[in-house]
Measured scan of single mutants.
Amino acid sequence: NITNLCPFDEVFNATRFASVYAWNRKRISNCVADYSVLYNFAPFFAFKCYGVSPTKLNDLCFTNVYADSFVIRGNEVSQIAPGQTGNIADYNYKLPDDFTGCVIAWNSNKLDSKVGGNYNYLYRLFRKSNLKPFERDISTEIYQAGNKPCNGVAGFNCYFPLRSYGFRPTYGVGHQPYRVVVLSFELLHAPATVCGPKKST
């Protein structure tokens, strides 16, 4: 009989979020998941679920829940969905086509923008091939755009693969920082350890 609540607040209220190319993952297990707390949290810009209804989450049990978190621009949030393409979905964070879970995003301009620009948040701009679902690539190898080998030196046709967002408070909404948490639900042939409040007695 599990009684402790799942530590969703640790994920959602973290002081610093990860850059999207180096997205953070927390495994959540052996706890009671009260999703209504999240669902009623006012400032969400997006709360979209795939393969599961957000209002039914509290009735369900899962083997594991993974909480992935990172920061992207407002106009990139739409790429955090199954079957998407674009710089983020291709080179930074890719969801599987059969994704079961929820994508939760909110504007973090007050936290993550600075006058003069916040350059701490990076994304991958160049990559030889697209990421596989949930693949994480933190390499900083110089990207070779031409035929000539770069030998690890940036220059003509040789690019550092990461780019900084440089968030400023005055940017338009599409270019403002958004914090994103992706909850993915794993249902294995194993005992369920993460259940909603109704199922955990």
Rank of each mutant, 00 (worst) to 15 (best):
V20D: 04
F126N: 15
S139N: 11
T85I: 08
A145L: 10
V180Y: 00
D90Y: 05
N64V: 10
I80D: 03
Q79G: 03
K56V: 08
Q144S: 11
F167S: 05
V181W: 02
C102A: 00
G172M: 10
R73F: 05
G146Q: 08
F185R: 00
Y39S: 14
S19H: 06
N87P: 15
G117K: 08
L183Y: 00
N151D: 14
R16A: 11
P169Q: 09
E186V: 04
V71Y: 01
V32P: 03
A89Q: 01
I2S: 14
T100V: 15
Y119E: 15
V20H: 03
T63F: 05
G74F: 03
C158K: 06
N87G: 08
P7Q: 10
V32C: 10
Q176F: 01
F45C: 13
K48D: 08
I80V: 08
L187G: 14
K199T: 14
T140G: 11
F185V: 05
T55P: 08
V180Q: 00
S53V: 09
S129M: 08
K110H: 15
I80G: 02
R179T: 04
Y39L: 14
R27C: 08
K148I: 12
I104W: 11
F167P: 05
G116V: 08
K94P: 01
F126W: 15
V182F: 01
Y91N: 08
A42E: 09
K198S: 14
N147W: 09
L38E: 03
A14T: 06
T63A: 12
Q79T: 03
F185M: 09
G116K: 11
L183S: 00
E135H: 07
I142E: 07
T140A: 11
N24P: 01
R168I: 09
T85M: 07
P133F: 04
S78V: 08
N30I: 00
G146D: 11
C31Q: 06
Y39N: 15
T55K: 13
N40V: 05
W106T: 04
G74S: 06
Y159P: 11
A67W: 05
H175K: 10
F185I: 05
W23D: 04
H189N: 15
N147T: 15
K198T: 14
N118F: 05
E186I: 00
I142P: 13
R163D: 11
N147F: 11
A46W: 14
N75Q: 10
S19K: 01
R27H: 11
I138S: 12
E76Q: 11
T193S: 12
N1S: 08
F99W: 10
F70L: 01
V32N: 08
E76R: 00
E10D: 10
V37Q: 15
V77L: 15
R136D: 04
G152V: 07
I80P: 01
S78N: 12
P133H: 05
T15K: 11
T55R: 11
E135A: 07
I142N: 08
A18N: 14
K132V: 08
C195Q: 11
F12T: 02
H189S: 15
F156T: 15
R27K: 15
R168S: 13
Y35I: 15
S19D: 08
Y121A: 07
G196N: 11
T3D: 09
T85H: 14
R136S: 06
K128N: 12
A192P: 12
W23I: 01
A145M: 12
H189D: 15
L95Y: 00
L188N: 14
G166V: 10
D98S: 09
R16I: 10
G155D: 13
W106S: 00
F17Q: 03
F99S: 00
L183R: 00
K110A: 12
L38N: 03
P197D: 14
D9C: 05
Y159Q: 13
F160H: 15
Y119L: 11
